[in-house]
């Protein structure tokens, strides 16, 4: 009977599929395990405290303090978020609450386009436009406030700085935050907005008191997801951030984020003892930060976006 053949094949594939479907989970664990194992030489020979909070980076002498790189990553990411978050949330609100469905359909592809531009092209743009802008306009303008606000002090004569990295990153993560926040806003029932408008509230009052509180979890998750994108972004940041292993004190200082450290030193990593383990530890640190943020935001967004249906 041919039918039983077919059914047998079906059952066989179904059983095989259980193993197949475990691949993504296994891959994630494998990446984690590989980086963990390769970091062991340095994790075992150096106390975790000096690795995480030490600021001496002298691979030849066997000194590996990751603090400059961790703080570089955090500086650049925070600056990017400070710039991107208000702009992105306002844009998402504008698209969702003030424009017609037709305009929205026109604008979505533009956001996709922005998201599709390769990282290295953002880097070129940063080198050509943002770095000179920071050097010639922003630094002289804001540096005047340096005596009051130390984070605006200008001691770095070039534009290659935390701020340049932050601006480029802000533009790169913008399409992510906008489209996810927009999607979250679309799940808020129209009736809720009507309920507020019916009481004679203005649109902005409606957004402020009814829409945003209802969407806050999802909007927050979209920001966290943008943050994890920013943490891992390599080439564009590397090209504009200066790559000096120091703990930045001002947004005009150069920084050296973790991804840049990994990308810049792969060539020499086999020639110095423990260097390869150090770079793997850098990858592991980066992966750890990204995973924590990612898992939180993915689970939160799932919850929010599923409620709609």
């Amino acid at each position: 009977m041919p039918a039983s053949h077919r059914s047998k094949l079906d059952r066989w594939v179904q059983r095989g599929f259980w193993i197949f479907s475990a691949l993504p989970t296994l891959l994630a664990l494998l990446i984690l395990a590989a980086l963990w194992i390769k970091s062991q030489p340095i994790l075992l020979s150096h106390p975790l405290k000096t690795l995480l909070f030490g600021s001496a980076w002298k691979p030849q002498k066997g000194e590996f303090g990751f603090l400059p790189f961790i703080s570089g990553t955090i500086w650049v990411t925070v600056v990017a978020l400070v710039i991107a978050v208000p702009i992105c949330i306002l844009t998402a609100l504008y698209l969702s609450e003030y424009t017609s469905a037709r305009t929205q359909r026109l604008i979505k592809p533009l956001l996709d386009l922005l998201a599709a531009i390769p990282s290295v092209v953002y880097g070129v743009w940063g080198v050509l436009i943002i770095v000179p802008w920071v050097q010639n306009s922003l630094a002289p303008l804001l540096g005047r406030w340096g005596s009051i606000l130390p984070i605006l002090t200008t001691t770095n004569p070039t534009g290659y700085s935390v701020l340049a990295g932050g601006i480029v990153l802000a533009v790169m993560i913008a399409p992510f935050i906008v489209s996810i926040a927009y999607e979250v806003l679309q799940t808020i029932p129209f009736g809720l907005r009507q309920a507020s408008l019916a009481l004679g509230a203005t649109r902005w009052q409606t957004i402020k008191y009814a829409v945003i509180p209802k969407a806050s979890t999802g909007i927050f998750a979209s920001i966290v997801l943008g943050c994890s994108r920013a943490l891992g972004e390599t080439m564009a940041v590397l090209m504009v951030v200066g790559n000096v292993p120091q703990i930045p004190r001002s947004i005009f200082d150069a920084a050296y984020p973790l991804p840049a450290l990994i990308a810049n030193n792969y060539g020499e990593m086999m020639s110095i003892p423990l260097y390869d383990a150090a770079l793997m530890t850098a990858s592991l640190l980066l992966l750890g930060m990204v995973l924590v943020l990612n898992i939180f935001s993915i689970l939160a967004l799932r919850h929010v976006l599923r409620e709609k249906t």
Partner: peptide
């Protein structure tokens, strides 16, 4: 798992 993999930075894939 797929969403998590999606979020892993490409430099980490490179190192792996």
């Amino acid at each position: 798992s797929l969403d998590i993999l999606w979020g892993i930075p490409s430099i980490v894939y490179g190192a792996f």
